[in-house]
């Protein structure tokens, strides 16, 4: 759920806005390194993808359904900096055009949903990947762990902001328990989708999974020459000339 206006008081909203501007500023610089002059079209299309993927509802339990948040997924696929930019732009457009999330709470939403999810998700992804053997199934496992933790982490970050600038005296323990409890469930759905999505992209275009770049070699085109080195002159024609 996007934070609406009036949930967090004005001073803390503005402070979160400053944090969000700083974070997006760092991401702007980093994204140039990840994508150079292709940044605008590729990050734009990825943002459109995140937006569309959020529309896909998946069943959670007993008739309720959740939908993807996509922070960790975007970070693993296109890199952490570009991931922050994509999710931030999605949040900006949702607040400006769809009234989804308050304008005064935009800083809170970007901090909690773009910065925290990506930093926690991507950091954890890299950490787990370093501990596991370098193969395809461990990339999926790392994506699962990263996504499953990133969603409750983002809920905890929101609870922290609420503790400082909340507008109602609900005991923070209660808020934390409720937020984390609900978001652990959402996180499991998110993690399943993230892991399977990353694995399926990895199977087709391993070069497009930024988080696993250099880890997994792209499928090599095996020529007849390579697989049957002893093929004589009467064998199949050399494919390298084709």
């Amino acid at each position: 759920m996007h934070v609406p206006d009036g949930f967090i008081n004005a001073p803390v909203s503005v402070a979160a806005g400053v944090v969000a501007v700083a974070g997006v500023g760092v991401a702007l610089r980093g994204a140039r390194r990840e994508l150079d002059d292709r940044t605008a079209p590729l990050a734009g299309l990825t943002a459109a993808f995140v937006f569309a993927a959020q529309m896909l509802n998946f069943p959670v339990a007993s008739g309720t359904s959740g939908h993807l948040l996509g922070g960790t997924l975007a970070a693993i696929l296109v890199g952490p900096y570009t991931g922050v930019l994509c999710v931030s732009v999605v949040l900006l457009v949702q607040a400006l055009l769809f009234a989804d999330g308050g304008l005064s709470a935009l800083g809170v939403n970007i901090t909690v949903m773009a910065l925290v999810t990506v930093v926690v998700g991507y950091g954890l992804f890299q950490l787990v990947l370093r501990l596991l053997p370098k193969n395809r199934s461990s990339v999926g496992a790392a994506a699962f762990v990263a996504a499953v933790v990133s969603v409750p982490a983002s809920a905890l970050a929101f609870t922290g902001l609420y503790a400082v600038g909340g507008t109602t005296d609900v005991s923070i323990g209660k808020v934390a328990a409720a937020m984390v409890g609900v978001h652990v469930l959402i996180g499991i759905g998110e993690a399943l989708i993230t892991a399977v999505t990353v694995s399926s992209v990895l199977a087709v275009r391993p070069d497009l999974v930024h988080g696993a770049r250099g880890l997994i070699k792209p499928p090599r085109l095996r020529t007849v020459e390579a697989s049957e080195p002893k093929a004589g002159p009467g064998g199949p024609a050399e494919p390298s000339r084709a």
Partner: peptide, 23 residues
């Protein structure tokens, strides 16, 4: 979930490759 996630994976590939062509 498995089926939906595969769709999302395909959607990402199509979006990203479209981005490459647009660029």
């Amino acid at each position: 979930t498995r089926v939906l996630a595969k769709s999302i994976g395909a959607l990402f590939l199509r979006s990203y490759e479209r981005g490459e062509r647009v660029h």
